Simulated assay, not measured.
Amino acid sequence: MAPPAAINKAGRQRMLSQRAAKAWLMLVMGVLPDRAKYILGQSVTLFDAQLAELKTLLPSDELRTLHLQLEHDWGRFRPLLADIRNDPKLIWTASEAVLTIAHKLTQAYEKAAGSSVGRLVNVSGRQRMLSQRMAKAYYFRQMDINTAPAGEMLDTAMREFDKAHGDLKVAAATTPQIKAELALVEQQWFFFQNALGMRDAGGQRKAATDVGTTSERILEQMDIVVGHYEKLAMGPQR
């Protein structure tokens, strides 16, 4: 596996830690339950597969140590996702632990790659994670669980997403094609912000559904963007 692909896959593990938690919360709340069940199953399966794939590219002691820690933390988080009767606070703690170590692993791969475009693979990949993190925080807040920290998490993630989006648009390596894809993300971001800001009781049900669907659309679109940066980081193909 080439280093840019490893950055992408490790970065996707960050996203999956938040997406799995989001889907679990959707099931608990009864928000699009069939879709949520599919998202949860897909997220767990993909995390398992990528964990195995990343094991084939661990060229340093640091990467090997981080991968072992990710395996350990995922091993604690994964069983919790199998039962919606579990304490949501356990989901909060376990998903945060997996996110933290997956982010360290992604940064280590970026450092090993040592390229400016590799950094853009990381940054754009983190946008995928933030799309799911915002949804996770929103659902925790709606459930009145860890309400204050969830509100802070949501506000911080929204600010970080907005800033990184602007940075990607003006990055020297960003091609016209990538800019066009980012413009599509921007359209969904407008709708997403509206849904995330919905607090009145009358609109909460619709907002909860919109958060679920729009977070997925942004994820899909950002995945395309990450793929473009990954190809750039790989250099000309012969």
Rank of each mutant, 00 (worst) to 15 (best):
R76S: 05
V98A: 07
E96Q: 12
L99T: 07
R64M: 05
L66N: 04
D61W: 03
L99E: 07
S116Q: 15
E62M: 10
P88H: 00
V117A: 15
W74L: 02
F77A: 01
E62K: 15
P59D: 05
P79E: 03
K89G: 12
S60L: 01
L105H: 02
L99N: 05
L70H: 11
L66F: 02
I84Y: 01
S95T: 02
R78G: 01
D73A: 12
I84K: 11
L63M: 09
A82K: 15
P59G: 10
P59E: 09
L68A: 13
L63E: 02
R85F: 00
L66A: 04
W92I: 00
A82H: 10
W92G: 02
L105F: 04
S116Y: 15
A94K: 03
G75Q: 01
A97I: 09
I101R: 08
E110N: 15
A113P: 12
L81P: 09
L81C: 06
P79Y: 03
E71A: 08
L68F: 06
P88R: 08
R76D: 06
T106E: 11
H72Y: 05
P79R: 07
I91S: 01
P79D: 05
R78H: 11
S115W: 12
P88I: 10
V98D: 03
T106H: 06
E62L: 14
L80S: 08
A82W: 07
A113W: 09
E62G: 10
A102V: 03
L81E: 09
I84F: 04
A113V: 05
A82V: 07
D83A: 08
A97H: 10
P88T: 04
I101M: 05
A112M: 14
T93V: 00
K111C: 08
W74F: 11
R85K: 12
N86G: 00
T65G: 07
D83T: 03
T100S: 14
L63W: 01
G75S: 06
E71F: 02
A108F: 06
P88L: 13
R78Q: 13
R85D: 09
I84C: 05
Q107F: 09
N86E: 11
A112V: 03
S116C: 14
L68S: 10
S115P: 09
R119H: 15
Q69K: 11
P59L: 10
A108G: 06
L80C: 01
P59W: 04
R76F: 06
